[in-house]
Write a protein that binds this DNA or RNA. Structure first.
Lengths: 229, 229
DNA sequence: CAAATGCTTCGACTAGGGTCGAAGTATGAA
DNA sequence: TTCATACTTCGACCCTAGTCGAAGCATTTG
């Protein structure tokens, strides 16, 4: 009678408030230590440790040991994708933690989703890349076109290094605030990194907010124009 | 400190085994009564009733009263989308209920996802529609092209009626077995319905399996060829 | 009207799991 | 080596939430 994967176990892992807080914190894309995650979730370190080993066993997190620290990050983009989807459902049901908080507007404007740009500017960049023909939807997923390769080279992104990793270069990710797609995958990550290198934008560690400088925003909009007839 | 929607509450709703079974059953797209869902989940009717009101309050289900029956269905495509995503995660973590069961192959071949065609044939149909230029990814989401409109008319699908509803006409939905997109939205539903009307395919209520007849499969592959150079 | 069916509410029971204090292990610094 | 830091394990507590029996509504049928 029960066919298909065991959805309940995975959902229950996300369903605990402390664990959900940790996962949400990891949506920033940064790897965090046990103590940092404990702080984030508002529980003691012992409790956090127990939660984290469950999340790891459930395939949601990827641990990395470094000296006496243990860093956790989301296991892959699929996890981030599901988390964003859940945020969309929760937002739709009106289950917001704080409604129209001061950070809310900034979060909708531009924020980090796992490791790439999300929010209004994220979807705008995605749309613009599609409209300029730099990426296309082919077969199952997004492909970088020849013009896209040129674009990346022009922006000094090392595609060769990115393609060595087995992670997909381009991926769609559904935005919970915009309800539209933005660009994930290793290229999405590389773009955000590049914005930071060029000091176009800075990301706030705690809140996931990405704040663009004045000149950075201007350069961004020149590179990814809203409408191109 | 806690910004964003309350993901834990929604995930916890899905995280209970009984509720997860009900939701999985509703992925068939059919509306089911309280007693049917109780049977499906293996709990008494009282327990099921309690679960269902929670799911309803959480915005995951949409109830409809009809006489002394109360029918439940998934609230919208977003819910189905998240559920499929969770199935993908659970499958990736190796948390399958039964591994390589007899139904498994059939499920991967063709099954119902909420109300549209999923599995190998679902993704194949999606790819073919894209390749033939009937649908394109524009701005945020999928759009039906002029040739797509002609195609629908030719297949005797009443687009006018579909467009009246505020539900999106075309949507992508990620397949947990294929890990590729297939067509959701009201057009996706209409296509599956049409296959049934033409007796190309029949869907099994219990298992979500969609079985194509011999001639039905032939017609399907003629209409959605795998490769068109 | 009464009987039957489908569902909801109430109340009580229980198990599972989240929580933390305390003790144990491992790595790095002095 | 000795101390400090980062994390894990153990054990006990407690409380939420899932469960079902029984009773209560609502709707349809006879």
């Amino acid at each position: 009678m029960k066919e298909g994967p065991d959805i309940a176990h995975t959902a229950a892992l996300i369903g605990d408030p402390a664990r959900a807080n940790m996962l949400t914190a990891l949506m920033s894309g940064k790897a965090l230590t046990v103590s940092e995650l404990a702080e984030e979730a508002g529980v003691t370190i012992q409790t956090a440790s127990s939660h984290l080993s469950k999340l790891e066993a459930g395939g949601l997190l990827r641990p990395r040991k470094q000296g006496r620290h243990k860093y956790f990050s989301l296991a892959n983009d699929d996890v981030a994708h599901v988390l964003e989807g859940l945020m969309g459902l929760a937002a739709g049901a009106g289950h917001l933690r704080k409604r129209t908080g001061p950070k809310d507007a900034e979060l909708r404007e531009a924020r980090v989703c796992y490791n790439h740009l999300a929010g209004d500017m994220g979807t705008q960049m995605f749309d613009s890349l599609m409209a300029q023909g730099h990426i296309v939807l082919e077969d199952e997923d997004l492909k970088l076109t020849a013009s896209g390769v040129a674009f990346a080279a022009d922006f000094e992104i090392d595609l060769g290094a990115l393609q060595k990793a087995r992670a997909p270069l381009c991926r769609e990710c559904l935005d919970w605030s915009e309800r539209r797609s933005h660009l994930a995958g290793s290229l999405g990550r590389a773009l955000l990194t590049r914005f930071e290198e060029l000091a176009w934008a800075k990301r706030d560690q705690k809140t996931r907010v990405v704040s663009f400088s004045h000149t950075g925003a201007k350069a961004f909009h020149r590179m990814f124009p809203k409408d191109l007839a």
